[in-house]
Amino acid sequence: MPQYGIFVYSPAPADPMDLSPEYAAALDRYAAQIEELGGKALSGIALQPSTTATSIRGDVVTDGPFIEAKEVVAGFYILEAPDLDVALRIAKLNPATWDGGVEVRPLFFPPAE
């Protein structure tokens, strides 16, 4: 099955310790919803708030995320889904879409040769 990287964007600084009880409850339900819709979440990670990030461009080291924006990457997981329609249906249910959003991007596998 195709695999997609799902980038979760939340309002900065996206502190996972500050999740509302509703958000946490929705996240608990989300795993089951993914399966019901025909997908499968593989590895997932949550990140510390963006205030803890350090970025390097060229040889310049700066405090904070790589791109200054209202929303920052809060986490990332790999979704297996039969096609983009299913992946999008699953992504739409992600509670991150309430006040931020998600990016769905197919994983790259080098051509088999």
């Binding site: 195709p2 997609y4 039969p82 096609d83 983009l84 329609d85 769905v104 991007r105 197919p106």
Partner: peptide, 14 residues
């Protein structure tokens, strides 16, 4: 091709 947009007529809900 890369994102696997399906070759399909959407279901009634969509």
């Amino acid at each position: 091709s890369a994102a696997r947009i399906p070759y399909r007529v959407p279901g009634a809900d969509e």
